[in-house]
């Protein structure tokens, strides 16, 4: 049998590196075109679920208490909370703006939620956060422009969806109560 094009890159990115495949990568294109094959492939081989949207894809680990995911959620939650203080649409800022790590170091330290960061292992100090940015870049969540500047890739929406669902659940819970 023949495998779809860029098979090695797809498996390497999704399985070995555990990162997001993004719109624009050759591997993403091939993955989307062979969606059925890969859904089956990853299920039969590893019992893992692939999630493919219009502009990003990832392989779910079937763990819902992952440390990395929790750190990312804490990071994004505080970032969004702080972003809300400035003008403009939050979702647009996240999608299109460029962020400076040094600037955000200051903003995080002044945030009223800084204690949550300190309680999160991967975010507890500037040094750890530097490593965290490397991790984000490795996993395909941000694109680093230089040492200081970065942009979010479309993959950040995966976590925003989580926040929306959480909000929805909370509202339902309130309605029932």
């Amino acid at each position: 049998m023949t495998y779809p094009p860029a098979h090695y890159e797809i498996v390497k990115a999704l399985l070995s590196e555990g990162r997001f495949l993004l719109e624009g990568e050759a591997a993403f294109l091939s993955l989307r075109e062979n969606k059925d094959f890969y859904t089956k492939f990853f299920h039969e081989s590893f019992r893992l679920e692939v999630s493919i949207t219009a502009d990003y894809a990832l392989l779910k680990s079937s763990k819902d208490s992952d440390n990395v995911a929790r750190s990312i959620c804490v990071y994004l939650a505080i970032l969004c909370y702080e972003l809300d203080h400035q003008d403009g649409n939050l979702l647009e800022i996240l999608s299109f703006n460029t962020f400076s790590i040094t600037e955000w170091e200051d903003r995080f330290e002044q945030s009223s939620y800084y204690n949550v960061m300190e309680a999160t292992d991967r975010l507890r100090n500037a040094n750890q956060r530097q490593k965290f940015y490397q991790l984000l870049a490795r996993r395909g969540l941000i694109k680093r422009i230089d040492d200081d500047l970065f942009q979010f890739t479309p993959a950040h929406r995966y976590f925003l969806e989580y926040a929306r669902e959480l909000n929805m659940r909370e509202m339902m819970a309130q309605k029932e109560a």
Partner: peptide, 17 residues
Amino acid sequence: GWLVFLERPLLLSVPDF
């Protein structure tokens, strides 16, 4: 949603990453 999350950041289940 994020505010709900930040109320219990270490207890809520997080997305399947």
